[in-house]
Design a protein around this nucleic acid. Structure first.
Lengths: 224, 224
DNA sequence: ATAAAAATACGTCATTTATCCTATTTACCT
DNA sequence: AGGTAAATAGGATAAATGACGTATTTTTAT
């Protein structure tokens, strides 16, 4: 974690409506801008965090380490959102949070302003709202995991993580994110290529039949 | 849903410390006691709920219906806890909530006191806390689902749902709760019996080797 | 710029985990 | 006692894993 001494960036972020939904100006003097590098640990499993983070830009990964040594990726967070709110409420958390890309955050020193924010109706309301969003997302991932084979979940991952028609993510990352073995992922990727849904060139995949992926992803919707 | 006209019960519940963590006496005039029968729907998928419920006693099931028609049980709730808080914050929810046993609740008419409770710091704080608990539970179920075969999760289910050494839950319920097919569940139950961990007598199972189950369950713990 | 080293990709095969389907038997209820 | 729900059983199939070996790509060092 590196402190960013760029007052303009700090003001730009803290003046945004998104940020002000959560934090009033009472907390400004306990806040400063920080940056995490890809791979850097933001919240360490089992430990209390000194800071509550407002993730402005970048992506993070929430994971748990099981007794069998396996790392399970629970969720992927994209800015803007909060990080460390579980630790704020509960003092510790069974999850790790790691930066995937470079992450720009506002770090709020909760050691010094815990009472202020935990008595702020607006903050608490928006915290509830963001917690509900996280819970719904996790629950849907669980539902998908139970109900659908990898091909469906992979289709969603590809659409969510492609730039235009270009898809290039390391397969080790994909398999961890989707909670399946590397081997099995490769098998299904190959199936998509064989069926003409994707085209492969060296390590890069190109979406050639977006409609096929769309159809798979649509199956994931909940009934309503 | 049946209204309970028992003032003593109402007072008994609303005077408890657990209840008062969430609700101040300002909301008392919008609250009344209700009862749900086993199997009855509490929150209907996709619809806004008129009430926020404080589940005092009984057990409920949270489920989602997927596009492929499959019902996935996301969570099981035991009193005391809140039900309908997602709908309170978000206006609708992709989940169904159904009573498993007879459930006694306090129903709070949020149509009439939404503003009061959503401006109550104490309510919001405890709501956050309960949302964090739910999120953690769901995330752990997801982690278990990804990392461990049925045998491990079943061991936990058996220990969680047995009375002493007696375990007697309908296999249809178990398989739905654990998100696996009936057929596969049966196979693994048979395996536990064959290995001498359980003993079967007609429709009732008895735990004969608790240590074996304990060992399986211990594998499920997260590293910390 | 090139060669060596490391990481990633990928095919094959054996095995485990889980599903689907259908038929039959057993328990439960009133 | 008869109807319904639950439990049992088996065969075929699919989904996912694991191990092993090899090829390709990327990174690092020279």
């Amino acid at each position: 974690m590196k402190t960013i001494k760029n007052d303009r960036l700090f003001r730009q972020i803290t003046c945004s409506q998104q940020y002000r939904q959560f934090f009033s100006d009472k907390t400004d003097r306990f806040a400063h801008a920080v940056r995490f590098s890809p791979g850097e640990n933001v919240i360490f499993l089992g430990e209390k965090s000194e800071y509550l983070y407002y993730l402005y830009s970048g992506r993070c990964q929430v994971s748990a380490i099981m007794e069998n040594g396996r790392t399970v990726i629970i969720n992927t967070l994209s800015g803007p959102c909060l990080i460390g709110e579980i630790e704020l409420i509960k003092n510790d958390s069974p999850f790790n949070v790691d930066a995937l890309t470079e992450c720009t955050c506002i770090a709020i020193d909760t050691g010094k302003c815990r009472d202020i924010i935990l008595n702020d109706v607006s903050f608490l309301y928006h915290l509830c709202s963001s917690l509900v969003d996280k819970e719904r997302k996790t629950a849907l991932v669980l539902a998908h995991h139970i109900s659908f084979p990898l091909e469906y979940r992979l289709a969603k991952f590809i659409l969510d993580n492609s730039n235009g028609d270009v898809f290039r993510i390391k397969k080790t990352v994909i398999s961890e994110s989707l909670g399946v073995s590397y081997r099995h992922l490769e098998k299904i990727m190959k199936k998509l290529v064989d069926e003409g849904t994707l085209r492969k060139e060296k390590l890069t995949y190109y979406i050639t039949r977006r409609d096929v992926l769309d159809k798979l992803v649509n199956s994931l919707n909940v009934f309503s």
